[in-house]
């Protein structure tokens, strides 16, 4: 199957999941024609052209809410929505929702102290910015 244009658009938006990104980058390394297509898409975006798919992704029109992702993890969504969320995560491989899901899973599983320490490091190294105001 030819690489769909929307896959290239998603790549430029950094909206692909881990395995899709890796697969596409591998193809880009060996396929000059694909690199040319990617450049052409970049040119079109530079000229202000956009696609329905890009707008859909940017506005996250079908992304489940973080609360729904939490309920998905707890397996308490109704069957129809659960099936859809599973599709959105696995088939659409939405990078933003996968990141949220991974975060929620980490909160459930990991040592809360480890996460807190990490966040404290970010805070301590950046809070000075607010004091400089």
């Amino acid at each position: 199957m030819t690489t769909p244009r929307e896959l290239l658009e998603s790549y430029l938006d950094d909206a692909l999941g881990e395995s899709e990104t890796a697969r596409l980058e591998q193809e880009l390394r060996r396929d000059e024609e694909l690199r040319r297509r990617l450049l052409a898409v970049m040119g079109e975006r530079d000229r202000g052209e956009h696609t329905v798919g890009a707008i859909w992704r940017r506005h996250r029109l079908s992304c489940p809410s973080r609360e729904q992702l939490g309920s998905f993890l707890l397996n308490v969504l109704d069957a129809g929505l659960r099936d859809y969320v599973d599709f959105h995560l696995r088939t659409i491989a939405c990078a933003y929702c996968l990141a949220n899901l991974a975060d929620l899973q980490a909160q459930q599983q990991a040592d809360a102290a480890v996460i807190q320490q990490r966040q404290q490091r970010v805070f301590q190294s950046s809070a000075g910015l607010l004091r400089k105001r």
Binding site: A99, N100, A102, A106, Q119, S126
Partner: peptide, 19 residues
Amino acid sequence: WEHLIARYEGRLFAFIHRR
């Protein structure tokens, strides 16, 4: 600022760790 970090740090970490 601390609240913002607590709210978003985890998902940003996961987003970056993907790459």
